[in-house]
Write a protein that binds this DNA or RNA. Sequence first.
DNA 1: TCATTTTATGTTACCGGTAACATTTTATGA
DNA 2: TCATAAAATGTTACCGGTAACATAAAATGA
Lengths: 339, 339
Amino acid sequence: MVTIYDIAKKANVSAMTVSRVINNSGKIKETTRKKVEQAIKDLSYVPNSAARSLISNQTKTLGLLLPDISNPFFAKLARGAEDKALELGYRVLLCNTDEDAAKEMNYIDMVLSARVDGVLIAPTCDQSLEQIDRLSDHGIPVVLIDRTIEGFQGDYVLGDSYEGSRKLMEHLISLGHHNIAFINGPSNVSTARERLRGYLETLKLNALPIYEHYISEIDFKNVQSGATKKIIEQLLCLEPSKKPSAIFAANNFIAISTIKALKELGLQVPDDISVVCFDEVEPVVYFDPFFTVASQPAQEFGKIGVQFLIERLSGGYQEDERKVVLSPDILIRKSTRSL
Amino acid sequence: MVTIYDIAKKANVSAMTVSRVINNSGKIKETTRKKVEQAIKDLSYVPNSAARSLISNQTKTLGLLLPDISNPFFAKLARGAEDKALELGYRVLLCNTDEDAAKEMNYIDMVLSARVDGVLIAPTCDQSLEQIDRLSDHGIPVVLIDRTIEGFQGDYVLGDSYEGSRKLMEHLISLGHHNIAFINGPSNVSTARERLRGYLETLKLNALPIYEHYISEIDFKNVQSGATKKIIEQLLCLEPSKKPSAIFAANNFIAISTIKALKELGLQVPDDISVVCFDEVEPVVYFDPFFTVASQPAQEFGKIGVQFLIERLSGGYQEDERKVVLSPDILIRKSTRSL
DNA sequence: TCATTTTATGTTACCGGTAACATTTTATGA
DNA sequence: TCATAAAATGTTACCGGTAACATAAAATGA
């Protein structure tokens, strides 16, 4: 591999002069600069980031930890993050945690070892705090995206799950639905708690009863293995007057598996049952907007997250924590109908 | 930041001994190992990859260059790649080229500077060869995914675009469609050429005429800006007997914009016109399989690609180039109908 | 018991850059 | 013309690890 010394030799100058040319620092005679630049071109030299990192103590690299890049919501988020990182001269290391705390822990080790300058993370659960603290202990700034954690100190960018939940519920109630089941994500994730809060509060505000058996929890892996069907079956077993006329799915993946299960059980959406959820179901939405959703600006999460992160790590922002909570858009489409 | 010297001092040994404990190399007395491990834990030391890279001349990092992570096809591919990389102890740097040769070039500089051990790339076009050669010149192995390039020397993993195209066309023809329009991607991408070849050949084999005005090209950016509509409008302007009864969209994004345009023009799929395409339209397919597609194993592309790449860079495989061409699955669903 | 292995640990130099300081060259002005 | 400032370039040491070699400590055996 070509080093700065090879260039120096070829251009008949010292390595330091080459370094100055590359970094445009110090005073360099025009003829020398030309010579050096020619040598760089001739030998197609590219500086070694590792060597630079060792001195500068920064890698110009960010860690991006999210559950699963093949979930369009997180893919959009990642895209926003990568775009902003590129714009600001940073690289992105991609990590899929699969909502798995153990995987997450290993990735934290990895990014620590990689000496990333900062970490953008959608934590798997509240227990992630311990791992995040390890990052902070090492002086690595962390920005949370999509989810927060109780006791976390620092910036975050999330959607307003409570508000979205409130509005989706109000929409269903306004359509005449009183028996609304709620299939939530794991309650050790902040979004799930907030969505539940919105669900319960809206029922209360509308003087509607809360049925415990309407509320269920399902995690990422069980959604993937099709366990949603069991939950739906149980809901459909209820006595006719208690049978839900609508289902509030806490996210797009749950919604998809819900629709699939309903279909397998011979039920049509929205004719037999209405369904709402969080997050767009991309890219269908572009040609056949079907789901009534609380749409979140995923790409913005990523962009703002990286912006905050880099402001922190470059010392450009030292003030209080910035907690950004973006409102979701409620998009009423074809998965809900009036009773 | 805690270094190996801090550990050495704390444990009252030399830095070398600490290094040996960490890497499990050489002979270490059990009591010494314990002491060192305790110190590592106490100071929560994590080795600095940059320093290691400098000596070992490897970064355990791969570059992943693809058009756009928010395209579910590439997201799946990325997921497969990242999974395999993790399994084999490698990290992944994510790069979105947006089918833009200039962006691609900058990323090549970036991965060169980052001294990645290898690069997995879905090149933007045939002209990418020059950039890829720069990587090879620096001794960095490259594996192509999804697309190949004329004159490229090395491994690749792609789908069989020709075969998929042949089968989609045969399907349409078997349904009685003779007037089939083809909206292709840019012809400087190998997949587009192969799909066109399949299109033309199938018509020929079935003794059907080839109409030049049935064939059009559209690039990524124009698809996003909605330019598909103009193409569709022109197709619908043709005299009744020449009006296409089916459209072959070269990829899922083109298919989506096609359906959208058709809808805006008041046409129903498949009642008024049939549509087929390459690649699944995720995640709709899980609950409402609509598109008749040539489905490609994107995740496998990523996995095999990384596997090949790491075999190359670790010197485990030195034989001839491996050209893997995976057959697509033809899945007949609801976007096509018999005439 | 003491030379000889074997085992355990330490020293030095280097990977490829750059900060800090040193030195040489050129320009400036009295 | 020559002291002096300014400009251009060079030297040295270090960032945090580890390979290669050196040495000390413990184990072995005749």
